[in-house]
Write a protein that binds this DNA or RNA. Structure first.
Lengths: 321, 321
DNA sequence: CGGCAAATGAAAGACGTCAATCATTTTCTT
DNA sequence: AAGAAAATGATTGACGTCTTTCATTTGCCG
């Protein structure tokens, strides 16, 4: 009943434990026919190495580095907190997470690194250093896996929400981007365009994820075009959006934005915004660590697409105690 | 640098390994002052028992039993599949899941059991047998933890969606329950009532999660009251709803229902329904197993509230390959 | 067939914890 | 203070794998 051990494999293959071990761990110096017999025995018995025992023996601890942009965008500080929480929670699993600003030096000696929404320069440096890299939030070429949401689908979702909210009426939705040069933001916009059609989608404005700029540019746009019936805020800086909606009172546009932060939560509760699409940073981070562990164990896990949560005023999760 | 071991703790406390072990594992026969010194040393060193080593030593394998109602409601068969998948995925973690119909005999000897949407009779039998029980999908008194969605919040969410969809117009929403005696269903209805108000919410019909009955009763209700602008299907049996919507063509009501199944997925894609609120069976099951493992390890984890996913046509996850 | 390299086997000591046994010390009782 | 009970210490062999060392066997070459 018990799972087969490497001893069982060796016995079944008719070789010694040493030889089975040499095959399993690729140490070389084994005749071809032995290799095949061991492989066959592994297959037959359905042997799976007990990773916990292996790690115990190797005194292996997983050393991960996480690069998260500095500053306190509500969102990235949630990511940062999630890494700290997870590091704490996984201490018993021999996992160490070294959390760093994306600005600092070359990667320390670690088993796998994760980059959250970082630029291409960083990943190049890491890859050059032979460290496998996982992309979080923002995909990037060269990454072994991407963990994050499908931004195109997110944009389509936002579009659908606007369509539902506009049922019957003609929609005029203003997209507010962080930057048109960010892949994520472009994808979201493209997704929305698929659903809304050109006549309903106004040209986007760019606020560089900056609340002040958001307040200025968006306020200006709303004054210039009183016929705007919807807003899709694609990036960050929504702190600047809230007071504008408060000023507009009862006939503000329908607002969809991204990431649940203290500000967007308050906005929902105060009926100043309508929908928040959240990519669940804690779950993303947990997922990223699982993937990194798998990579460190020599597996080749695929990318993980997080299904974003959609929050209204009514289904906000309780604040953690 | 390396994590402290129990040997380190013993040394720091000035006692032998045996004594430290007796304290840690509550074996008794230890003087109060030794207990305190060991506790203090554990605290000071930040000692955390290495669970992998412990499990290795105990040859511990977690034996779980999962009771899932028989039959192939799309939803419960997804739960069932999730258990099988997880059992497979966690074989390396020494976790065995014994999946059973809720009808069969008393609990086998196991570390923890999980009941998915079962009646009270079952849980009583299990609890009498000293097996800790976790409730999945449907909460029940006596369970050590509940893993599932907040049904009240789900109902409110559905209500909000209807309000968004009805903006301006007067809503007349027909709730379709499985059974008014199910706690989950009552909660969902109550949640919706909080948002919609009595004048917009019609009296519910009951279809007992049965597609045929759904087709008959709902069809009848729709013919009787052509002014229905929305449907909230609270339970199962939605297979019977789809063809009705197809028949109504362009001016069908706005439809919100629960659980992503092959049928509801097809309904979304064919524009026959609008929103699916899904409780993510796979995630729930994974979560339940984590909780059960924690319970088996002697921890006392809390309940977990799953945030339901909200699906439109546009953000459906790809079908697993 | 001698000699050399390659292949194999045997063994042992980690890793950190569990669990059990037995010997010894301390503490309490009367 | 003697004897019983309680507490402690010392030790050992698992658990399954890793890693290294050393001895032995096998195969191949000229």
């Amino acid at each position: 009943m018990r799972n087969p051990t490497l001893h069982d494999v060796a016995r079944a293959a008719g070789v010694s434990y040493s030889t089975a071990d040499r095959v399993l761990n690729g140490r070389g110096g084994v005749a071809m026919k032995s290799i095949q017999r061991v492989r066959q025995a592994i297959e037959d018995l359905g042997y799976r190495r007990d990773i916990t025992a292996a790690n115990l023996s190797r005194r292996r601890s997983y050393r991960f580095a996480a690069y998260v942009p500095p500053g306190d965008h509500g969102f990235f500080s949630a990511i940062r907190r999630a890494f700290l929480d997870q590091a704490e929670a996984r201490a018993g699993q021999r996992i160490t997470v070294d959390l760093r600003d994306e600005l600092d030096g070359p990667p320390a000696d670690c088993d796998c690194a994760v980059l959250a929404g970082a630029g291409q320069e960083r990943i190049d440096a890491l890859i050059a250093g032979d460290v496998p890299v996982v992309a979080l939030v923002t995909d990037m070429p060269g990454a072994r896996a991407y963990i994050g949401i499908d931004n195109l689908a997110a944009g389509r979702t936002a579009g659908r929400l606007h369509r539902i909210a506009h049922r019957g009426r003609h929609a005029r939705v203003l997209p507010v981007m962080g930057s048109a040069s960010l892949r994520d933001h472009r994808d979201r916009l493209a997704g929305m365009a698929e659903i809304l059609g050109a006549d309903s989608l106004l040209p986007p404005i760019e606020v560089r994820d900056n609340p002040d700029r958001m307040r200025d540019l968006l306020g200006q746009a709303l004054r210039a075009d009183p016929g705007i019936t919807g807003i899709y805020s694609i990036g960050a800086g929504n702190r600047g959006l809230i007071p504008l909606m408060r000023d507009m009172g009862g006939n503000r546009p329908f607002v969809v934005l991204h990431e649940l932060t203290p500000h967007s939560r308050a906005g929902l509760l105060d009926d100043l915004i309508d929908v928040v699409i959240d990519q669940k940073p804690a779950e993303e981070v947990a997922c990223a660590l699982d993937v990194m562990k798998a990579i460190a164990d020599g597996e080749t896990p695929g990318s993980v697409t997080i299904t974003p949560a959609i929050f209204f005023k009514e289904n906000l999760p309780g604040v953690p105690a």
